[in-house]
């Protein structure tokens, strides 16, 4: 695979279609700046700032870009909020659509056949693969990303975090909690 990829890169680069230094820069961006730490900051801000939360749920792209301290997002980002009544979970059954700008590149499981096939038909069993069990009374809402809209889940703020700083709150927010396959960390593990 390594040789085949290098061949393609050499050909495309010798023909002047790509600049290998640009490839380095793209890889570096996703290995450092663009990742779930961005999403965690957004969630933490929504937890402490009601006006931001409201804007985020109405226009996530605009709200995130107005923050200034996270990597910019393009179009069509939608934030969906978990409540006591509803748990949200995001999938792309047709390919691997994922909110790259706020969560980075998706983990292997998100792109795998087991997750893509089962999330829409037996989401509770999928959640149990992640060690998550929710009350039977909780509605499970699965969002299949079949167009260019991209979804991030805003998990509920856990109890016992009154007065916490935005930074400390962000440490509670896991990648999986923003995809809807996990829950936020236990505040006692972070305190």
């Amino acid at each position: 695979m390594q040789v085949r990829v290098r061949s393609l890169e050499t050909v495309l680069s010798e023909k002047g279609y790509i600049d290998p230094a640009a490839l380095d820069a793209i890889v570096e961006a996703y290995e450092t700046r663009i990742g779930p730490h961005n999403g965690a900051q957004i969630v933490a801000r929504a937890w402490i700032d009601p006006q931001f939360r409201k804007t985020l749920l109405e226009d996530a792209t605009g709200a995130v870009n107005a923050m200034g301290n996270v990597s910019p997002v393009g179009s069509h980002l939608i934030a969906i909020e978990n409540t006591d009544a509803t748990h949200n979970m995001v999938v792309c059954t047709l390919c691997s659509c994922y909110p790259w700008e706020v969560l980075g590149l998706p983990p292997t499981w998100y792109k795998s056949a087991p997750y893509r096939s089962r999330a829409v038909i037996e989401p509770r069993k999928v959640l149990s693969d992640f060690g998550v069990t929710l009350p039977e009374s909780t509605e499970i809402r699965v969002w299949d990303s079949t167009a260019e809209t991209r979804f991030m889940v805003v998990p509920a703020r856990p109890a016992g975090t009154d007065g916490w700083s935005e930074e400390k709150l962000a440490a509670l927010v896991t990648r999986d909690s923003m995809v809807g396959t996990g829950l936020v960390r236990d505040p006692e593990d972070v305190a």
Partner: peptide, 26 residues
Amino acid sequence: KVTLEADEPVFHEEWESRVYAMNRAM
């Protein structure tokens, strides 16, 4: 079952990162 990997790297192999970046750069 869904298989999970703790502390998964962004790319598992260098060639994966080149494939991703080539797709973006094109």
